[in-house]
Design a protein around this nucleic acid. Structure first.
Lengths: 202, 202
DNA sequence: AGAATTAAATGAACAATGTTCAAGAAATAG
DNA sequence: CTATTTCTTGAACATTGTTCATTTAATTCT
């Protein structure tokens, strides 16, 4: 049986992912270089292309890891006992902002990575993004019991994207982004307005 | 006087910007190549670096042009006669979505361009982004007469960023983005919720 | 107008980087 | 123990942004 081979292979992939995560967290996604990452992982340049299809694939593995951590952070922000949907939304948004700030470059990498045209993102990686919206569905359902499941998922995506937009422009340091010192305040105000507005809707 | 020189210089810069705009609008910002752009502009490779500091600078000129067009589009969406602030917001958001769809890759380039670390974005280009938020201040002031000017500008940024986030994730085709066919509907719902919610706030 | 100076145009050369591949090493199977 | 399969290696290649010495054009000075 190919036991030692599989072990070594898994070992190397792990080392490469860790090295890539390290590079990205320090230098950003554009600072990830094949030579630096293989040097840090202790293998030859070409070994990377045996372990992964290409650099983009390696980035996706790093991003899936970040998404898993982010998903855990969001789920752990859900209140134990029953609370108002607005409070749940606020807790989720706050945790999202915290995670983004504490994992700045890894979080940015989630949304700045764009595989070259023609390279389809594999389904397993696409699905890993679901953690971003699945926690929103329940509180939104309380606010909008009138919406059917499909509309609820759609509105969850919209709600996430709205908060996300504010955080993204801020953490990217864009001219139109809100200053970091105002970010939590503004996100909170947005969530408040969205939940009140949603509750009113007919 | 250096008349002919200045003329030729301006001419070349214009040709380069147009060629770059053409490349970006067709192939996206990652498809912009120095050799292709100089070939299309009818000059030598090195001439680009006489006309502009580097490729990033050329991109910024293209982006400033796109921002100017976008600003004009937004201003022309403002209703002639007095209307409710919510209607103004809806008109602006709709126009924003329309522009983004009709100028897909040029619009995407506005937010996917990230100059390498250490390269500061020049002030003239930063300021060109102001068109994105300055149209929002007036209707927001009607919704929230209690906010002072500084808070109004801040909330305008937040409001823009929220709508922007929904459009960006959709047009980037991200997993968590809303499908293009639902985009207008969802943006409208978001604006509706935000304006109603804002109006309620104390 | 003609010489001297300044600026621009050119494309070969360089550096950085992702990816491939032929040759050798290691693991597995027979 | 041999044969086969797989992995490892780093040199080589392709692409791309950028620089630079040389040539050419425009401007200034006398």
């Amino acid at each position: 049986m190919g036991n030692k081979r599989d072990e070594k292979r898994a070992e190397l992939r792990k080392r490469l992912i860790e090295a890539a995560e390290d590079q990205i967290s320090q230098q950003g996604i554009d600072g990830l270089k094949a030579r630096a990452v293989t040097a840090q992982a202790g293998c030859a340049l070409g070994a990377l292309y045996n372990a992964f299809e290409d650099l983009d694939m390696l980035i996706m593995h790093v991003n899936s890891r970040t998404l898993a951590r982010l998903g855990a952070a969001l789920r752990s922000a859900l209140p134990e006992q029953e609370t108002s949907p607005e409070e749940v939304m606020q807790a989720l948004a706050t945790r999202y902002v915290d995670f983004a700030c504490e994992n700045h470059k890894l979080w940015i990498a989630l949304f700045e990575h764009r595989p070259p045209e023609g390279h389809e993102i594999p389904e397993w990686h696409r699905q890993d993004h679901a953690v971003l919206i699945e926690v929103i569905v329940a509180p939104l359902k309380q606010l909008r019991p009138d919406l059917d499941d499909q509309a609820l998922v759609l509105r969850s995506r919209t709600t996430f994207a709205a908060v996300h937009g504010v955080v993204l422009l801020a953490l990217q340091g864009r001219f139109v982004g809100v200053p970091m010192q105002d970010l939590r305040q503004e996100v909170s105000a947005l969530v408040s307005a969205m939940t009140r507005g949603a509750h009113l809707a007919v």
